[in-house]
Amino acid sequence: MIETPTTPPPASRSPMVKNIIRESGIAIALLLLVLVFSLTTEHFLTTANVTNILTQVTINLILGVGITFVILIGGIDLSVGSVLALCAVVGGTVMNLPGLGVIEAVTFATLASVAVGIACGMLNGLISAYWGLPSFIVTLGMLNIARGAALTVTDARTIYSFPPAFNAFGSQTFFGVPLVFLVALLLVLVSWFVLTRTVFGRILYGIGNNEEAVRLAGHPVFWYKVAAFTIAGAAVGVGAMIYVARLNIASPIIGVGFELNAIAAVIIGGTSLNGGRGSVLGTLLGAFIIGVLANGLVLLGLSDFMRQMITGGVIILAVIVDKYRERLST
């Protein structure tokens, strides 16, 4: 976005530099939003409200980080909302198994939730990579399968009794920062490291840019694809447990439409739907733009319908801006 005479010719720019250019643009947009809401509303920039925003972005951020891996290889995951419900109800069921102490119950439940997420993600990856099917279709199928499975597991009932210590974790803060947000932040940092500092990560970008070249270089593209979907599934498993801890319910009907919000966070964050370009730091910023908008527009007293229109407008605007950024940074 910022083109200065001293920058080297476009062709020599490393992906890192490109990403920083992209993210600074999104960061400026976020800062502008924060500035506007700080000036126009009384409560926006208070410790309590910042804590609220951090809590409110957490689940979307976790789902978005997972989906970033999938979108980077040129795929999409529409199943995360339903898989979240399945993970939550399986985790919730495990947590209520008789004869477990609190620590065992929470540990087993978390493992079960993440395992279910991994299984669903892996299935998405295996099926779409093996038969070369569009992940749009495969994950749309999984969206239905996971929802049906969640309803089957619970017989369509809501689970609502959990250990108090587990619920306390859902609302605990550390110097104003919710613990659940710290979990999300940790996922962002680990993902950022994996994507930018490891061969594995570079190959994922490579698959998004030129799958054939990666294949010719002798890398098992199939398994890298499966891995990307599996990571997305694992993230959903974590998000599901945070949902249960925060809201104290595990219901088979939760998470409807969450995938769209998470994909929006990824796209606003500058990750290209064509794959190969973007980063989890962008997703972090994208999730915050959505969260800050949702929070600030209520504080401003704007009607629900206006709020919806503005959020939609921001998504489209982000893609348009991305087009220009793309030209500037390549």
Partner: peptide, 25 residues
């Protein structure tokens, strides 16, 4: 003081109401 939709949903109600409460303590 205010009236908003949370689409019948727990999580959305949690966020929307938290924000309403911030605006109207």
């Amino acid at each position: 003081v205010d009236s908003r939709t949370a689409h019948w949903e727990t999580e959305e109600a949690n966020s929307v109401f938290t924000n309403m409460l911030t605006a109207n303590p």
